[in-house]
Design a protein around this nucleic acid. Structure first.
Lengths: 198, 198
DNA sequence: CGCCGCGTTGAGCCACGTCAACATAGGTGG
DNA sequence: CCACCTATGTTGACGTGGCTCAACGCGGCG
């Protein structure tokens, strides 16, 4: 984990877009910065408490992170990339706040929160399978692919242990639902298995 | 459970505020209506799927429910009162959308979503205890009180079974953390136990 | 080369789910 | 008023899914 927050992006020098690699911190709670829209990838949000930081939300393509900076100037949560991410500034300085856009963001946040809650219900295998579904994206050839996050992150999201997640992933591979997942994290092609179609 | 959605509240006849009793449906997914701010009480949100409806979020005092109606005119979720509620219309027709207010709502929704996620982590007793804390409110005399939701709702929120929640509630009572909770749901006074102070 | 972080897998155990019986409150109709 | 029914909550007995603990494999890096 390499923190990029040591060189915070201020609103005055807004870049076009930002690339973050899997495993990297995007920002820490309490630091200054701007809001971002996730163009691609997956982001894990954490709430920081005196006893440590706890998983507190998920952001995927289209979601906005750090919106609270438009109010307070500082991030309330901590964000880390759990897949290679591309971010773009959201509502860059000078742009007037569009009520429509804000409402879209609010509605999206509520849907995503429901997704995150659902990932903590049901049997272990089902949870991991649904998480993979959520993380999958379509390629140009119509097949799907996933960048598998670290087990630690998948475990936090599903509220399972790393061992249990590992067993579920092994089973997904044995069943042919996931292909090509070696000993290291990386790109995986979900099969065309109809069971994966839901 | 008595649905009030059969007489939907249109934006043209906006009431000052609305009182809903514990157990009643506030609105169903797909129906027309307006957005509400929860002045007091607790609301359970559900996502409706072909296989039934699943718990999808919690709204407490200050939170906004049904904001998506400002975009689509219809509710995406289903809402039910799990405590006696007082609701007031949010951004009634004619009021211009305030970016500030929307951002406050967005930030609040994200915090609440994090709370809801946290209620599905940790040991059963801890989860139920934290849920009670979240539902407690201060009275004029400085003591706290809770309207205990139905076990079914507490079970859905914490992702436990009703039996397990019942055992946890019994233990809270035996420990003196909750007082006066008979065989029926109702008002309960949390004790001044320091363990309850967190 | 040796260390370290991450992932995998097995063995055993326990917190919680399942199932069931019962208690209590409220409603409804006689 | 009681008799009865239903919905909800309580509690016990028992089974099990997932946690714990541990050993090991593998890759990256100094």
């Amino acid at each position: 984990m390499q923190a990029i927050s040591t060189t915070p992006v201020s609103a005055s020098s807004t870049p076009r877009s930002l690339r973050i690699s899997i495993g990297e911190r995007i920002y820490v709670a309490g630091s200054e910065g701007i809001a971002w829209r996730v163009k691609s990838g997956a982001v894990r949000l954490d709430r920081v408490t005196p006893e440590g930081s706890d998983y507190a939300g998920l952001a995927l393509r289209g979601d906005v992170i750090g919106a609270e900076t438009l109010l307070y100037g500082r991030y309330s949560f901590e964000a880390s990339a759990i897949g290679d991410c591309e971010l773009e500034p959201w509502l860059s300085a000078g742009t007037t706040l569009s009520g429509e856009s804000l409402l879209q963001t609010l509605a999206g946040a509520e849907r995503r929160a429901a997704d995150a809650l659902a990932l903590r219900a049901g049997e272990a295998f089902e949870r991991v399978r649904r998480l993979c579904l959520l993380l999958a994206r379509y390629r140009d050839d119509g097949r799907r692919e996933i960048t598998i996050p670290e087990l630690r992150d998948m475990a936090a999201i599903t509220n399972l242990t790393e061992a249990t997640v590992s067993r579920a992933m092994s089973r997904l591979r044995r069943m042919g639902i996931l292909q090509r997942h070696g000993h290291r994290r990386g790109l995986v092609l979900p099969g065309a298995d109809p069971a994966f179609a839901i």
